[in-house]
């Protein structure tokens, strides 16, 4: 609710960075994300070897020649991880977009409209929320004849929209009776115009964080599917690397380099996405931001720990 003084226009003020970018968590997350997107684009070109190519260096630990070591067939793990980035990012993106579009359609419609249809949509999203998604995805993908990236992304997208829909519905319900929406309705705006131009802009942050959350889920699901051997073993992604590591007893042979890089890549990507999500959360709800300087001296010389959100109560024996 900061009231910006209008006099600022008189003296040229140095333009501040947009607040979202100024948040260190969001910046770190975005930078990491950018790195992974870059790798997804150029990964297959800069990979030093063909990921499926066999060589005579069997099960070598990391060295200058093979940065992440080699597999039981002498394949270069660094190239596999690099080439696999594209599939991971692609599936995450497609599934995220599909699920977000569905979530917006179902969530906003069921939140804004009333009646049996809206109740039905809400019940539908609750059903999808409660049914365990991963086993469902596993049984669907393992019965499909084709398990390429796009198919898997679509299956994940169509089964994981429910969380976003629920959050959006709750938010829409709280917006639909606000004064500005009532005013728009009173001036005779059509329902679709109200939804698109009055309500949707206020849902941007919720939609964005839902999208990021779905991408995390989609990435982990895709890797899991590859790890248990459901998806196409021909293409490379981080899960395929882990699948081969597990099935070739990498653990028993002490070949830690086989599964550590792929797992770290997953964890880093997941962390990057969660950081972006925290950035969005803190942008929307400033209370969640970490505290700054918290010890303050009062007039009579005592120190009080100030905490955002708390109203300090100063008594005789204030702690």
């Amino acid at each position: 609710m900061a009231v910006v003084p209008t006099t600022a226009a008189v003296t040229p003020v140095k333009r501040r960075k947009p607040r979202f970018v100024a948040n260190p968590k969001a910046t770190t997350g975005l930078a990491l994300m950018g790195f992974f997107v870059l790798m997804a684009v150029i990964g297959p070109w800069i990979a030093p070897y063909d990921p499926s190519e066999r060589s005579s260096d069997l099960l070598q630990p990391p060295s200058g020649k093979h940065w992440f070591g080699t597999t039981h067939l002498g394949q270069d793990i660094f190239s596999q991880v690099l080439v696999g980035t594209r599939s991971v990012m692609l599936v995450g993106l497609i599934a995220g977009v599909v699920a977000t579009v569905l979530a917006v359609l179902v969530g906003v419609t069921s939140g804004y409209l009333s009646g049996a249809g809206a109740e039905g949509l809400s019940a539908l999203s609750n059903v999808f929320l409660v049914i365990p998604a991963l086993p469902l995805i596993i049984i669907i993908t393992s019965t499909l004849p084709d398990t390429g990236n796009i198919t898997i992304a679509l299956v994940i997208g169509f089964t994981s929209w429910a969380w976003g829909a629920r959050v959006l519905r709750a938010q829409t319900l709280s917006l639909r009776r606000r004064d500005y929406v009532e005013a728009a309705r009173a001036t005779g705006e059509s329902t679709w115009r109200i939804i698109l131009f009055e309500i949707m802009p206020n849902l941007t942050a919720v939609i964005a964080s839902g999208f990021v959350g779905t991408v995390i889920f989609a990435v982990i699901s895709e890797i899991t599917l590859a790890f248990i051997g459901v998806s196409d073993a021909g293409g490379w992604n981080w899960g395929t690397v882990l699948f081969w590591a597990q099935s070739q007893q990498a653990l028993a042979q002490g070949a830690w380099w086989w599964f550590v890089p792929a797992g770290l890549a997953i964890a880093l990507l997941g962390t990057a996405l969660s950081l972006v999500n925290f950035g969005i959360d803190e942008f929307v709800s400033p209370r969640l931001r970490g505290g700054g300087k918290t010890r303050v001296k009062t007039a009579d010389g005592r120190t009080v720990r100030m905490r955002v959100g708390f109203t300090p109560v100063l008594g005789e024996e204030a702690k």
Binding site: I216, I220, I223, T224, F227, L242, A245, Q246, L251, F259, G263, I266, A267, L268, L269, G270, T271, L273, S274, L275, F278
Partner: peptide, 13 residues
């Protein structure tokens, strides 16, 4: 944050 982004099975490995 970091720990919750790690897939369960990889932590097991």
């Amino acid at each position: 944050t970091f720990v919750s982004s790690i897939p369960y099975f990889w932590l097991g490995l």
